[in-house]
Design a protein around this nucleic acid. Structure first.
Lengths: 172, 172
DNA sequence: TTTTTTGCAAAACCTTTGCAGTTGG
DNA sequence: CCAACTGCAAAGGTTTTGCAAAAAA
């Protein structure tokens, strides 16, 4: 919560702050907006919860619950892994966080950006169904890992049959 | 391995066989082709392995390892769950079986049809990358479960940046 | 015979839960 | 103050592993 080294994605410069109390690694605005949303939803704001949010926002990587706990433990060893899980659950149930199951390993969590979405188009009736981009996170991660392919969510539509058309005339 | 009731996807008629020894639920041809491929790959063909293949092919549902074991246990209680896991692993490493991680629950397995594939197109260089349809299984399952949307694999392309183009000019 | 596979038991792994104490609003 | 949250310990569900016996080639 003070004097940190820079670990963000920005490639400009490494800056080492010596004695000024200052948060560099995390975008405070985002942290506060998530925290505010949490409060607005009737949740309580605690040190542990703030730390979880800061940690998630401190990187663009997707972190496992254990990753989050480990990073927090540097400064706050008292925050228990189960608290991290419960905090992530709480934030997720409000829609502020999403998690994805990546292959064999543990689930990864990230602050969810509720704007992006993906279209699904029915090849029969032409209907369009919007789904949250998070539904494609799993696929995204895998394609990136296995093929180095960076998916452009929303730049293409998924084709198929919607519920009504699929039930009416099942494919052979 | 004899006198079974029909449980396949066909909607024509329910047929109850009384005394004729006959396998209805499983397509023997497919079972044998998978078993043959296993043998060709240097694996050994055992009762347990045959049962796993038969079970997977006896339905169009995706089964968990535990599902497979349970179904086998009806006739063959001696086949251990760990053997099922090891058999599924063995078949998967040869490419005959694929598994998918579906949300929270256990992984589901299915005989992989190596023909289907999905295209990924680079929006920069126009290059096309083929990936196995199995890569989309997870998404398929989720969209079906959550939206009743039946994805038509191969009928659309995934857009994004391929490895080369993504590395050359990273998105803002 | 030789190597692979099996059954069993036990561990490993990730996640959830019960409870008593603490804390935020 | 009171409900919500925390730390801890312990359990839960899924998957993996070590080993000796059994079976395939």
């Amino acid at each position: 919560m003070s004097t940190r080294t820079h670990t963000t994605a920005s490639r400009t410069r490494i800056c080492t702050v010596k004695s000024i109390t200052m948060t560099i690694s995390t975008d405070d605005t985002n942290v506060e907006s998530v925290i505010d949303a949490l409060r607005r939803a009737g949740g309580r704001v605690t040190t542990a919860r703030r730390l979880v949010v800061e940690t998630l926002l401190s990187t663009h990587e997707h972190l496992t619950a254990d990753d989050v706990a480990s990073r927090i433990h540097g400064d706050h060893p008292e925050v228990h892994l189960s608290t991290v899980y419960r905090t992530l659950d709480a934030l997720e149930s409000i829609g502020l966080v999403a998690h994805t199951h990546v292959g064999h390993g543990p689930a990864v969590y990230h602050v969810s950006v509720p704007h992006e979405h993906q279209h699904m188009v029915c090849e029969k009736c032409g209907g369009v169904v919007d789904i949250p981009a998070a539904s494609l996170d799993d696929l995204c991660t895998r394609l990136r890992a296995e093929y180095g392919f960076e998916l452009h969510i929303g730049h293409f539509a998924l084709l198929g049959h919607c519920r009504g058309c699929g039930e009416a005339a099942p494919a052979s």
